[in-house]
Design a binder for these strands. Structure first.
Lengths: 109, 109
DNA sequence: GGCCACTATTCAGTGTCACTATCTACCGGT
DNA sequence: ACCGGTAGATAGTGACACTGAATAGTGGCC
């Protein structure tokens, strides 16, 4: 990724992953593949795993180890109540930022 | 600011300031006041000054020292051609990110 | 004449985050 | 036995916004 995008993702990537988990439980490798599909072609796998560990330690997700037919067991993450609350806050903050930016883009005031 | 917003601002605040300078030349204290008016109530002054020094060193802005009627001289920053190009790139990246986020928010796919 | 408020900038130290690079581990096919 | 795909962990790095304090000029008030 360009450095600009890397910096922009700080704080946002966390929200993106939580938003994905709000739709359905998922595991790291799956999330990485999904992101690549959606155009985030260069997000390193290591980044996602580190992020998942972080949100687990903060108590936003519940974790379950599930055996895989292929390869080692998966760690499936499920968003819990605390995580949902944090995601709500994320969307509020994102909206605030996005609105200001949009105003700025169109000549502003 | 909440920590969430602090992280989201990384990379974005730079774009915000460049966007302001795209509208008109400005100096640090002025930009800080403007941001506070626009709802970024808790952005520290020190943050803006550090950012201005950074974009100056990268060559995105031209600087002129202008005496002030009140207080010490101002450092007035003007966006130059390089800065404008960088700002264009910022808007492209921002659009990309904002679109993905918007898709995610509405149930996604 | 000393103090305070406002204007204006600088700087050292801190925490957080995404990235890089590398490592472990399990499976199937050849 | 080897390799490619699946799945996860981790130490070290760089960039950025924040904290908190310092510096410095001007004007008004008592």
């Amino acid at each position: 990724m360009g450095k600009q995008v890397t910096e922009m993702l700080k704080g946002t990537l966390e929200g993106i992953v939580l938003a994905i988990l709000a739709g359905r439980p998922a595991y790291g490798y799956e999330i990485t593949s999904w992101l690549r599909d959606k155009g985030f072609t260069e997000i390193a796998e290591g980044t996602i795993y580190a992020l998942l560990i972080r949100i687990e330690q903060r108590g936003y997700v519940d974790v379950e180890k599930v055996p895989s037919e292929k390869g080692p067991p998966r760690k499936v993450y499920t968003l819990n109540a605390q995580g949902r609350a944090y995601l709500d806050e994320f969307w509020r903050n994102w909206s605030f930022l996005a609105e200001r930016l949009e105003q700025l883009r169109k000549g502003d005031g």
